[in-house]
Simulated scan of single mutants.
Amino acid sequence: MGEATKRPRLFVSHHSSKAEVALQVEAALARHDVDCWMAPRDVDPGEAFDTAIQKAIDECSAVLLLFCAQSDKSRHVKRELILADSASKAILPLRLEDVVPHDLAYHLASAQWIDWLARRDEAMSRIAAKAHRLDGLDQSADVVAAADALHAATILQASRQEEPARMPPPPVPSPPASSGMPVWVFAVIGLVLVVGVLAGMLLTRGGEESGPAPEPARLADVEASDSMGEANSEEGKVEPEIVEPTPVVPPMRASVSPSFNCSKAASRVEKMICSDDELALLDRELARSFRELRAVAGQDRAELEADQRNWRVAERDACGSVDCIASVTRDRVALLNAAKLAIMNGEAF
Score class of each variant (00 low, 15 high):
L10C: 05
L10H: 06
L10Q: 11
L10W: 02
L10T: 12
F11S: 10
H14D: 09
H15I: 07
H15V: 09
H15L: 08
H15D: 15
S17M: 09
A19G: 02
A19R: 10
A19E: 14
A19W: 05
E20D: 11
V21L: 09
V21G: 00
Q24K: 13
Q24S: 10
V25W: 01
A28C: 05
R31Y: 11
H32D: 12
D33T: 01
D33K: 07
V34P: 02
D35T: 08
D35R: 07
D35K: 01
C36A: 12
C36M: 11
C36R: 06
W37C: 12
W37G: 11
M38A: 14
P40L: 14
P40C: 12
R41C: 04
R41Y: 08
D42L: 05
D42I: 05
D42W: 02
V43F: 11
D44K: 13
D44E: 15
P45D: 04
G46L: 05
G46Y: 02
E47L: 10
E47Y: 10
A48K: 04
A48E: 07
F49V: 07
F49Q: 05
F49R: 05
T51L: 13
A52D: 03
A52F: 07
I53K: 01
Q54A: 14
Q54F: 08
K55I: 03
A56G: 07
A56D: 09
E59T: 09
S61T: 15
S61P: 12
A62R: 07
V63K: 02
V63W: 00
V63A: 11
L64P: 01
L65F: 00
L65I: 09
L65T: 10
L66M: 04
F67H: 04
A69Y: 06
Q70L: 09
Q70V: 04
Q70M: 07
Q70K: 11
S71K: 05
K73I: 09
K73S: 14
K73A: 15
R75V: 12
H76D: 14
I82R: 13
I82V: 15
L83P: 03
A84W: 03
A84K: 06
A87R: 14
S88T: 09
K89S: 09
A90M: 08
L92P: 07
P93A: 04
P93I: 07
P93Q: 08
P93D: 08
L94N: 06
L94P: 06
L94W: 06
R95A: 08
E97G: 03
E97R: 02
D98G: 05
V99C: 14
P101H: 08
P101W: 02
P101G: 08
P101T: 07
H102C: 08
H102W: 11
D103P: 00
L104F: 09
L104E: 12
L104V: 11
Y106M: 10
Y106F: 15
A111N: 04
Q112N: 13
Q112L: 13
W113T: 14
W113A: 13
D115A: 01
D115W: 02
D115K: 03
W116K: 03
W116D: 01
L117Q: 15
L117Y: 02
A118F: 04
